[in-house]
Amino acid sequence: MNTLLLLLAGFFLPLFPLSMVFNWVLARFTHPVIRILVILVWPQIGVLLLLAAGAPLTGSAFLWWGLLTAAFYAWRLLTVRELGQWSAMLATSAFALTWVMAADSGRAIDLHAFVLGFAVAPALLVAVTALLESRLGAAYAGLVTGMARDMPRLAGLIAVSLLAAMALPISPGFFAMVGLLLHSELAPVVMALLTWLLWSWAGTRLLRNTVFGPRSGKNVADLQPLHAWGFAVVIVAAVLMNLIWTGA
């Protein structure tokens, strides 16, 4: 194993405090397409570095470093209210779990599919952030509450994106998580489960302050039906491809 390469991979499969670079990059670029590209490509570079360093990393301290980073960022997610920042921290937490996957599997295809599975939800959330910012000027939980009443399509999209972010069935994140857990040791499994629980908690806190609650904030136009269909097609395609990939 090449430790230098592994440390370098720590920037791309974020390990705290190297993870601050990833979060800084995502905050630096405001254009949604660039942010989505960063979320999709950044961890794949990390996987390439991991493979070059010599995965699987059996018995490596990097496994626990990754786990602690994942749990740490999941805990921090609880009080983040800006959706763009939230998606960046979620991505950090999820990508850090790749180190657990790499402890067991050295197969390139498994690792690439794993990070891709976890990249779908943050990428979707970046798109939702852009939609909210274009309408409200900011994508901040609590700015506009009770969206389900007047903006059912946008509220539906936020709800589906957040459910995917919580890695709930049948999102790709769920299968990535279950695939990871089925092949891991006990202690990493318990730690990953705690991280998963924190994602759920953080996700519902965002739902409470956007989709649910008494209607407040300014009135803005709902998502156009055509755009809603576009998002639906993308989400269904991602789910179906993942179902086929996981062997359903």
Binding site: M20, N23, A27, W75, V80, E82
Partner: peptide, 13 residues
């Protein structure tokens, strides 16, 4: 409370 403190301390990065 802990989460909020750590986020403020780390400037949300």
């Amino acid at each position: 409370e802990g989460s909020k403190r750590i986020n403020v301390w780390m400037r949300w990065r």
